[in-house]
Amino acid sequence: MSGEISDRDFTDRMVKRLPQEAPPPGFEAALLAAYDAWREARPHGAGAAWKAGFARFADLVWPGAPRWAPGAALAAALLVGAGLGTVLPAAAEDAAPAFSLEQPAAFSLSSDQQEDS
């Protein structure tokens, strides 16, 4: 290293120069008060349970994202899926094979055998 420090050590030294600022006075008390307010206002009933369930699911998919984001992603995925589901079978029909194992055969060995006999 010929006496020169690495980028890692340089960054370490620089970042260590940044002051560790303490939270403003009353910040933790304000958070606790917010908790009390949330506990008081916690909704009850089936609608509230459904909303809370959706919120938990959304955070599972995309933690911390705005509420609309997971819903929008799901809607977009559904649209793409529905679109593909519509277009692909039609395309597959166009390219259908000339024969199918599910169709009865157009010829029979037994008739050939009768002719031979």
Partner: peptide, 23 residues
Amino acid sequence: LLARGRRTLRTRLAHLNDFTGER
């Protein structure tokens, strides 16, 4: 991400050589 961030920081702060000693 760390490698790119460190490199950029070093480029931007290279003039603070009293912290690095050798540079």
